[in-house]
């Protein structure tokens, strides 16, 4: 589903953000991407979704190169950033309509999907209000709904649980399971190690731009607690 091959990215000023990183995510995977602040998680994620250009390496989504055919790749991906700055001058519904139009979703289909997810996340009554009046959590929920309504094959998320209330976090976890059981894959970064340990069947830990460990969760942890493994690796 997602193959990252020898990804390297250096920012202006000489900071090596990601150094020769390789990862593979298959359909059905919930892949947790963990690292300290400034480790290179967001850079990797933004390179995958086409927001950042990278210096060398390749990224393939279902065999298609993100460099050669970014549009086709983006049609298969949904991205949710850690701080979803959504158009504040639109209402929630207008934003969802905009995303639906970009992905060519029919009026009927978008209505039923928006209804379904808006009820699930309990923001149906707020969709008529301007995004500027939303709390951070509501914006996060809106971003999640916008990501799901175009039925992506790969969900890429940066800290998806930040700002969500407990019920919505639980709903999101249920959706993850449903999404992967239908053949999708999820690639997300998080600082909440308990969630990563419980949810993810695969984990990667990155430190100073370099991949330190990657693989099935059981193989990486070897019976230990993820927090302990993480602290040992990143010290």
């Amino acid at each position: 589903m997602l193959r990252i091959c020898n990804l390297t990215k250096t920012y202006k000023g000489g900071k090596l953000a990601v150094d020769d990183l390789s990862l593979e995510i298959s359909a059905g995977d919930i892949f947790g991407f963990i690292g300290h602040n400034g480790a290179g998680k967001s850079t990797t994620i933004k390179s995958v979704v086409g927001i950042l250009e990278f210096d060398s390496g390749e990224i393939y989504v279902n065999g298609i190169s993100v460099k050669d055919d970014p549009i086709t790749c983006k049609k298969m991906i949904a991205y949710i950033p850690d701080n979803p700055d959504i158009y504040e001058y639109l209402t929630g519904m207008q934003y969802l309509d905009f995303i639906s139009d970009i992905f060519g979703i029919s009026a009927q289909e978008r209505t039923s999907l928006i209804d379904k997810y808006a009820e699930m996340f309990e923001i149906k009554d707020n969709l008529g209000q301007l995004v500027s009046s939303y709390s951070h959590g509501m914006k996060q929920k809106l971003a999640i709904i916008a990501a799901l309504i175009h039925k992506p094959k790969l969900l890429v998320m940066d800290e998806p649980f930040v700002g969500l209330d407990p019920k919505s976090s639980h709903t999101l976890k249920m959706l993850f399971a449903e999404f992967c059981s239908e053949g999708g894959a999820i690639f997300f970064s998080t600082h909440v190690l308990e969630v990563a340990q419980k949810l993810c069947n695969k984990i990667a830990i990155i430190k100073n731009g370099k991949l330190v460990v990657s693989g099935n969760t059981e193989d990486v942890l070897q019976g230990e607690d993820l927090e302990k493994v993480f602290l040992e690796i990143t010290e």
Partner: peptide, 11 residues
Amino acid sequence: TKNKTYTDGQK
């Protein structure tokens, strides 16, 4: 504000 909560249709 009483903005609409239904879709605008496909464009």
